[in-house]
Amino acid sequence: MSAVDQPKMLDLATEDPIAVMELFAEHGWGDGLPLVPPTIERVEAMLAGTPDTDPDEVIATLEPRGGLATRRMIAVNAVLAGCAPEHLPVLVAAVRALAAPELNLRGVNATTHPVAPLLIVHGEAVSAGGYNAGLGSFGPGNRANASTGRAVRLILLHIAGATPGPGDASTQGGPAKYTYCVAENEAASPWGAYPASVGVDAAGAVTLHCGEGPHNVHDMESADAGAILDKVASAMTSLGQNNAPISQGEYFVALCPEHAAAMAKMGLDRADVAQWLFEKAQMRVGDLRRAFALRAWAPWQEELDDDALMAMTEVPDNIKVFVTGGAGKHSCVIPSWGMTKSVTVPV
């Protein structure tokens, strides 16, 4: 489709990176960091990352601005972020996921919560784009993870209009709003690739989960996987998370390979891990009620007595488990914003 208005062009007297930053700042654009100027030549080179496609095809309309995310505009922001052409297919898929109704992008962008979409890259897209799924996978130090995550944010700022203030009311903002991209370490996963567990059978895929920054889970001493899982459950059990008042909220549990191996050795599969956490990550209903007059709980949860224990999410399936990282014994939990569902789509 090429009926879309062509994007505006700007004239710059110099390629000095400071001049680019200043020009963008004048327009209220950018994330505050240096930007690669999106010249026609660079954008054309970026578009070569998805050959034989229409650059003006509208991949999605992104709220709250109603911005038309064409392949070309995604490429413009990919150039700005420092991406390479091989990252463009991942970004196009990420934009499709961001626009899924169940993700509720308008709410994600507009809320006072510090939510940011976490982009998880899976399967063949990991090696094709050079994403880091191993040591230090949440960063820094890898161009693919850093620039693709940053491009997602620039797309949200520019195309979706998630400008702090008029389009993003986040009280404190958050570091995850700069770049938030990780790759699944499928080779180290005892349970295969994550997308298959949510019914996406594709060689490469991305998942978008709109949540908080990672909450660390440190366990260097437990031989028993149950003890590790109890620590994960502890990281999930907090009155400060939106999961406490919003029962539909998901958790993403990013296990390091060694923790995952310990769980597999104990005979647990992915669903068993989720079930364990569902049963252990619980709080007293009365404490939750006292903390939150405003709740979005399932009706059956509202019927529970104050002294009953209630899981931090409505069903075990809301606890999503994947493996990432390298050697060492640190995993993490990524609580949800709440009024959103994760989306996995093929690349």
Binding site: V4, Q6, P7, K8, P38, I40, T61, G66, M73, I159
Partner: peptide, 13 residues
């Protein structure tokens, strides 16, 4: 040097 504006067209009226 000519560069693209990063926001692009919108459906919003």
């Amino acid at each position: 040097m000519r560069i693209y504006a990063p926001d692009g067209p919108t459906t919003a009226t």
